[in-house]
Computed example of a mutant assay.
Amino acid sequence: MTTTERTAGFAPRDRADAIDGFACPATRLLLAGDGLTTTSLEAWARAPLRIGTLECRVRGGRDAPVAPAAAVLGDRDRFLVRGSTLADPAGTVWSANDVVARLDLDERITACLRGTAALGPALHRAGVRGRRSLLAVGRTPWPLAPAPVAAAYRVCLLRHGTEPLAVVREIFNPALIDPRPLTGGAR
């Protein structure tokens, strides 16, 4: 797979159609979820997950690795970018994640973004009650494969109250989370 498939625009029906296009019911449930990704993946893995790799840095707005970030978070010159993986105790990576966040955030949120824990649980422990809005879902190349292989992904907007905090892209390991499309038109 050489190109990223995306849902058309931000319309809820388009996202629902894209989710319905996955063959595996468990994949559809994961993609449609409005949060608790780490908890969902831990249930799937039947093991706790931890951050496998982590990189945080400040990048220019035009260099944000998640396409809708600047449009959704506002036209800013710089963003905090966090790249991470979630891995099980055996070291198997379940997801590769990119977070693009505003720099003018509450100290608690910035500490979570720069911390070494999974973001959702860290925000929850810090008392930040974020909610997610699904922006896009589809298939994209799995970034950890030596050759292109399709993986399921989703992009969410994370908010605290009405404030947009970050855009989160989660790409799921295709060896563990089935990215195959539904074939034959039956749903």
Results as ranks from 00 to 15, higher is better:
residue 185 G to V: 13
residue 38 T to E: 07
residue 65 P to M: 07
residue 64 A to W: 01
residue 65 P to F: 08
residue 46 R to V: 04
residue 67 A to P: 07
residue 19 I to P: 01
residue 50 R to H: 14
residue 95 S to Q: 10
residue 16 A to L: 14
residue 165 L to W: 00
residue 173 N to H: 12
residue 22 F to Y: 08
residue 107 E to H: 11
residue 85 T to P: 10
residue 131 R to T: 13
residue 172 F to S: 06
residue 47 A to E: 09
residue 182 L to T: 14
residue 45 A to C: 06
residue 32 A to T: 02
residue 37 T to M: 07
residue 6 R to I: 01
residue 40 S to I: 02
residue 35 G to R: 03
residue 121 P to T: 07
residue 7 T to I: 01
residue 89 P to R: 08
residue 47 A to H: 09
residue 153 Y to H: 12
residue 75 D to S: 12
residue 185 G to Q: 14
residue 68 P to Q: 03
residue 102 R to W: 01
residue 160 H to G: 08
residue 174 P to F: 05
residue 159 R to T: 10
residue 117 A to K: 13
residue 130 G to L: 13
residue 160 H to F: 04
residue 123 L to G: 02
residue 161 G to D: 08
residue 156 C to Q: 04
residue 25 P to W: 02
residue 129 R to K: 10
residue 161 G to L: 06
residue 58 V to T: 15
residue 4 T to S: 11
residue 37 T to W: 00
residue 158 L to Q: 01
residue 170 E to F: 04
residue 109 I to C: 14
residue 171 I to R: 12
residue 13 R to T: 10
residue 82 R to W: 07
residue 149 V to L: 11
residue 158 L to W: 03
residue 158 L to D: 00
residue 168 V to N: 03
residue 147 A to E: 15
residue 57 R to G: 13
residue 89 P to V: 06
residue 6 R to K: 06
residue 66 V to C: 05
residue 175 A to G: 14
residue 179 P to N: 09
residue 128 V to E: 07
residue 15 R to H: 11
residue 108 R to P: 00
residue 161 G to N: 03
residue 63 D to K: 06
residue 68 P to M: 05
residue 115 G to V: 07
residue 86 L to E: 03
residue 61 G to E: 01
residue 111 A to V: 04
residue 184 G to H: 11
